[in-house]
Design a binder for these strands. Structure first.
Length: 412
DNA sequence: ATTGCCGGGTG
DNA sequence: CACCCGGCAAT
């Protein structure tokens, strides 16, 4: 389960990491021409600098961790949340924004990641995450690195089910979102509230309205409408309508938001089985699909979580989006969170079921084109470590990839 | 131009 | 062996 190359990496890490550190401090939001820079730096001194860089590294690390001392309260409260109100969380998070919460948040890494990130470069984030987990001394939890989900990490902050006002909640999430990010979202979203009761599907424009609706119609509370025990919250969801109609379908092309798109390094085995978190969530999704693609996926994140154990740590700044065989493709339009630091290719856009070769395997098999064509392998069409993690995260590649051999992690 | 990786080099 | 990289083919 652990990553074999981790230890082996250590030595090289030093040099790499330092180059990263330098780069980030210098060229935070520059277009990171890492390939060059890196090479350069590597070729350069490599050895001389090593010791120095280590110091630097340590230093930096200290600085960071001291700056960002994690309120321990957060973690515990969030654990609580998990226990008590998982369902509520799912619902609410679904109903608020395209964000998703990240379940067991790691103590400080994630924080530091999301913190310094504040709408900044993805790569910086990931790198920071990286050195904190890979450091030999750091024992905290090696196997679960922090996904530098920016706003996500904040999410758990919110109390899951607030009885008082649905609007507040939405606002809150928005605030959270905007706060670290100077830029406002450009497009105007119209927020509606949709009743999730079985055959209802009523849509109202105010939370109060929908609550009232649920209370009176479905819950059968007749009396004064101001009596609310918060139960209604579970029966409606907030949906966002893009008023400027653009690119809803094209959402997949949207500039990959650094914060969330990096959700997870792909894992092959678990396609989407894990995405049915709770029956509630499921039905909800179903209901929502025709109406909106907002609030994309809790499921996704959930899936992510498990995925982490299986694959290398620390998410990638790049876009991680897979279409698994079962024709389930996730794409989300991220609110314009500043910008994408690196020229991540908007890889997605496959409509659906681009599946893996596995799907088509039989056809291929049935017709062996001709004898002995390729001495070379056809070339795997799946993403390989390099593509997935990018040059700047080379240390996360599988060994083969690093050696420039056939990738063995994302075998196609 | 970029990416996957073979073939061959080094220690 | 593990590790790295030139260079080619596929994209």
């Amino acid at each position: 389960m652990t990553f074999t190359f981790q230890s082996e990496d250590l030595k090289r890490d030093c040099s790499k990491k330092m180059s990263h550190q330098h780069m980030f401090s210098l060229a935070m939001e520059e277009d990171v021409k890492t390939a060059d820079t890196k090479k350069a730096s590597r070729v350069l001194d490599h050895e001389k600098e090593n010791t120095r860089s280590i110091c630097l590294l340590e230093q930096k690390r200290k600085v960071v961790s001291s700056n960002i001392d994690v309120p321990p309260a957060r973690k515990s409260s969030e654990e609580l949340d998990m226990d008590k109100v998982t369902a509520a969380m799912v619902l609410t998070s679904l109903s608020t924004s395209p964000l998703v919460r990240s379940p067991p948040v790691r103590p400080n890494e994630s924080l530091s990641g999301s913190w310094k990130e504040g709408g900044c470069v993805p790569s910086s984030t990931s790198s920071s995450g990286y050195w904190s987990w890979s450091a030999p001394s750091d024992q905290s939890n090696p196997s679960t690195p922090s996904p530098p989900l920016s706003a996500d990490s904040f999410k758990p902050f919110r109390s899951p089910a607030q009885p008082d006002d649905g609007i507040d909640e939405a606002e809150a999430s928005n605030l959270l979102f905007d706060e670290p990010i100077p830029r406002k979202r450009k497009n105007s979203m119209k927020v509606m509230f949709k009743c999730l009761w079985k055959n209802c599907g009523k849509v109202l424009s105010t939370a109060a309205g929908i609550q009232k609706h649920i209370r009176t119609i479905h819950l059968g509370r007749v009396g004064d409408s101001d009596y609310s025990d918060g139960e209604e919250d579970f029966y409606y969801t907030e949906i966002k309508l893009n008023t400027d109609s653009v690119a809803d379908g094209l959402s997949s092309l949207a500039p990959v938001s650094p914060s969330q798109s990096l959700a997870s390094p792909p894992t092959f085995p678990i396609p989407d089985s894990s995405r049915t978190e709770t029956p509630c969530a499921k039905t909800e999704t179903k209901l929502m699909t025709p109406l909106s693609r907002s609030a994309p996926t809790t499921l996704y994140l959930v899936h992510t979580d498990h995925a982490y154990q299986a694959t290398p740590p620390v998410t990638i700044p790049g876009s991680a989006k897979f279409t698994n065989g079962s024709s389930f493709s996730i794409s989300w339009q991220s609110p314009p969170v500043t910008f994408t630091g690196i020229p991540v290719s908007p890889t997605h856009h496959h409509p659906v079921g681009t599946g893996e070769q596995r799907q088509h395997a039989h056809t291929v098999l049935s017709s062996p084109p001709r004898g002995t064509v390729s001495l070379r392998k056809p070339r795997g069409e799946g993403k390989k470590c390099r593509k997935v993690y990018g040059m700047e995260n080379r240390d996360m590649w599988c060994t083969a990839c690093r050696w420039k051999k056939a990738c063995q992690r994302f075998l196609d």
